[in-house]
Design a protein around this nucleic acid. Structure first.
Length: 493
RNA sequence: GGGAUUGUGGGGUAAUUUGGCUAUCCUUCCGGCUUUGGGAGCCGGCGAUCCCGGUUCAAAUCCGGGCAGUCCCA
């Protein structure tokens, strides 16, 4: 009877929007009642998962030689304006223009992404080709004055961010780094978080302003909308020109430095994990991301003291042993909740593995094990536990991965004509692969027409690094000219 | 950025149309008894009309403004 209030009351397939809102609340992931538009509180269960995403990313890029640093929370107006003058891009920001009751003469902004605050320093730091390459990153939040509808962890005015900003002598080094950024996304987002995605090269009209090329890992959410999980940019020497990042080359001449920047959207990755892996009972988490990996639920009886003692003694020993094995374990020995209530609670939170221990288990020296992804309860000998937790963790991860891949594949379709595309997007959304004339600037007008016809479909780009082949004689689905590329269309957040 | 809609205990709601008595019910939470192998039961208790202004004898209810949320569409 309490089911209606405590568990999820909608099915993910039937109303994803409502499901998403409910799970954020009921799994205790965020609190949207902070009271300033677009700013939310990340509660412990969410933040522990988010921190894990950071851990993996930081480890990956540090292995590539990136150094950590931390820039201030603010950025000078003059430096922001440079970005606009040279790249034509100024994000909407919050201005700091008063301190106490005094006006600040030269106002400054709460920082959006780091280019405008980092590159002026880079201009001071590098003098010689010997100073390069320079690879560094920071993990921190980003603030925009975003007037659009906000959605927790997907679009807000403040969000958790990660950015690397690299400087090179040669353009080839920049291109190599783009590939490494792709590998980083593969490693963390695909392999660890089990989120399938496409790596796109964005069309020229939709790249990061000031970049020569933009690449993005994009996935699709259960409501069929594209979720851009990050981006990496080949900046060429554009920003070096704007921010005066010059080095003395081997031959003695001054030259502009080449740059890349890479920014996985931490919250977007989190939102994808919640939305794609979760089910009608709650969160489903890959084993390594779970704040609690193994929960022990004792079956206890208030009337039978001795029996309860016996059960709890075994549970406490299990807890200690499992912790020693290196797993994050929790013994839920609350005596005022029924076992059923506990099962539902921890399933809502996405704990991967549950061990039940009652009098029967104590006598047989076993535990009953149940996986979050389903299947029957299994009895496991206590002496085999270490081995079994390890193998069950792999089994769970595999199951999550297979489900996610199947889901992703089911959200990719093909269309040859605009009419077909319109029909598909009306019914399914997701990614649709289509023949398209051009991803250079001359293709933009075809996108506009397609966007109007499909009510918001956008060209995500071409697959990278390996573009789809275009069959002979394929025509652009919009203008009918020869199709030079196969591109993917999707609506986005 | 466009449109729609909402704001009542921690969460979900009734009363709002037609202003009026002690603001309804469910749940959570707290205390007690009892119970525990898939969301137990009974008894008792705490707890609310988003903010500012206006109209009125009287405002959760009507009017104006603000703040915030949700949904649909770009």
């Amino acid at each position: 009877m309490a089911e209606n209030e405590m568990g999820l009351t909608v099915k993910k397939d039937e109303d994803f929007s409502e499901w998403y809102t409910q799970i954020l609340n009921k799994a205790d992931l965020s609190d949207i009642r902070f009271g300033i538009q677009g700013f939310i509180v990340q509660k412990p269960w969410a933040y522990m998962i988010i921190r894990k995403i950071y851990d993996y990313l930081e480890k990956e890029v540090e292995m590539q030689g990136h150094l950590p640093y931390r820039f201030p929370t603010v950025v000078k107006e003059k430096d922001l304006m440079k970005e606009e003058e040279h790249a034509g891009f100024t994000p909407e920001v919050f201005w700091v223009s008063e301190a106490g009751d005094k006006k600040i003469e030269e106002r400054f902004a709460l920082r959006p992404t780091g280019e405008a605050q980092i590159y002026p320093m880079y201009s001071l730091w590098f003098r010689s080709y010997r100073d390069l390459p320079f690879l560094a990153y920071q993990s921190r939040n980003s603030v925009f004055r975003n007037e659009m509808t906000t959605r927790p962890f997907i679009r807000g005015r403040e969000f958790m961010f990660f950015e690397s900003h690299n400087v090179y002598n040669e353009h080839q080094e920049a291109l190599d780094q783009i590939k490494k950024d792709l590998e980083t996304c593969d490693e963390v987002i695909k392999k660890k978080a089990k989120i399938p995605f496409y790596y796109f090269k964005r069309p020229q009209w939709d790249k990061f302003l000031g970049a020569d090329d933009t690449f993005t890992p994009d996935t699709v959410m259960p409501d069929g909308k594209r979720n851009q999980l990050g981006s990496t940019h080949d900046l060429g020497t554009n920003f070096a020109k704007a921010y005066d990042i010059k080095i003395r080359a081997k031959d003695g001449k001054q030259q502009l430095a080449f740059q890349t920047c890479f920014g996985p959207g931490i919250w977007r990755i989190f939102a994808a994990m919640v939305g794609i892996h979760g089910d009608d009972n709650g969160l489903v988490l890959p084993f390594d991301f779970a704040p609690v990996q193994v929960v022990i639920v004792p079956i206890i009886f208030s009337k039978k003291k001795e029996l309860t003692e016996k059960v709890l003694t075994m549970c406490k020993k299990l807890e200690t042993d499992i912790r020693k094995m290196g797993y994050k374990v929790k013994l839920d020995d609350r005596d005022y909740e029924s076992p059923g209530a506990k099962y539902n609670h921890w399933e809502l939170k996405g704990v991967p593995m549950r061990l039940e221990v009652g009098p029967k288990e104590v006598d047989e020296k076993v535990v009953s094990l149940k996986l979050r992804t389903g299947g029957d309860k299994e009895k496991v000998n206590v002496s085999d536990l270490k081995k079994v937790i390890g193998s069950k963790a792999l089994e769970l991860d595999k199951e999550i991965e297979v489900r996610a891949q199947k889901y992703f594949k089911g959200n990719v379709r093909e269309a040859k004509t605009l009419k077909e595309l319109v029909k598909i997007m009306k019914e399914h959304r997701g990614f649709v692969k289509v023949p398209f004339c051009s991803v250079e600037m001359d293709g933009e007008k075809c996108e506009e027409e397609m966007k109007a016809e499909t009510q918001g479909g956008r060209v995500c780009g071409t697959l990278y690094p390996k573009e789809d082949k275009v069959a002979k004689g394929q025509k652009c689905m919009v203008c009918g000219k020869e199709a030079k590329h196969m591109v993917y269309i999707a609506k986005s957040y």
